[in-house]
């Protein structure tokens, strides 16, 4: 290795180190701005402005999904198994919306326990299975609905 090459190698290693540290500092400090949604627990600790749109995500709690025919209001509870947030929504539900499945809602917080949603997004997980396999697993009692 020539002297020049060695010098450049050191330059690039040092500047990479600085770049990585700088990026780590930035991303760690921007955490609140980078997250797409709050979990119900994170929401309790977050400072929220009631005029600003926020997003909350988690699982749709079992037996909490209701639709009021008269008012056209959908209501359900988002949970992360330690905290719950009530949601009310008027609009079109995504096809994949279901109890015990992931969901992200966008809307205005009435307080830290209640949100009026403007948009409901279904969050799906990273598991892909054919329907028959799911049926077989359920039969054997090996499939756990989360």
């Amino acid at each position: 290795m020539s002297k020049k090459v060695k010098k450049r190698l050191i330059t690039i290693l040092l500047s990479s180190l600085v770049l990585i540290i700088a990026t780590l500092l930035i991303t760690m400090n921007l955490k609140d701005n980078i997250i797409y949604f709050y979990s119900p627990t994170e929401l309790q600790g977050a400072s929220i402005d009631k005029k600003n749109i926020i997003r909350v995500g988690g699982l749709v709690k079992e037996d909490s999904y209701e639709y009021n025919d008269k008012t056209k209001i959908y209501s359900f509870i988002i949970t992360d198994n330690s905290n719950d947030v009530d949601v009310e929504f008027v609009g079109i539900m995504p096809n994949l919306f279901a109890e015990n499945k992931g969901v992200v809602v966008e809307g205005l917080a009435i307080d830290k326990k209640k949100i009026t949603a403007i948009k409901v997004l279904a969050k799906h997980d990273e598991n892909y299975m054919p329907p028959e396999v799911i049926d077989a697993l359920k039969k054997e009692g090996q499939w756990q609905e989360k």
Partner: peptide, 24 residues
Amino acid sequence: DWWNTLHQPATISKLSAPSIHISM
């Protein structure tokens, strides 16, 4: 993995049980 995202985490790189069926 680092932040809450709408996008789901990786299916393939997981070391735990396969989360995609062999037919897929």
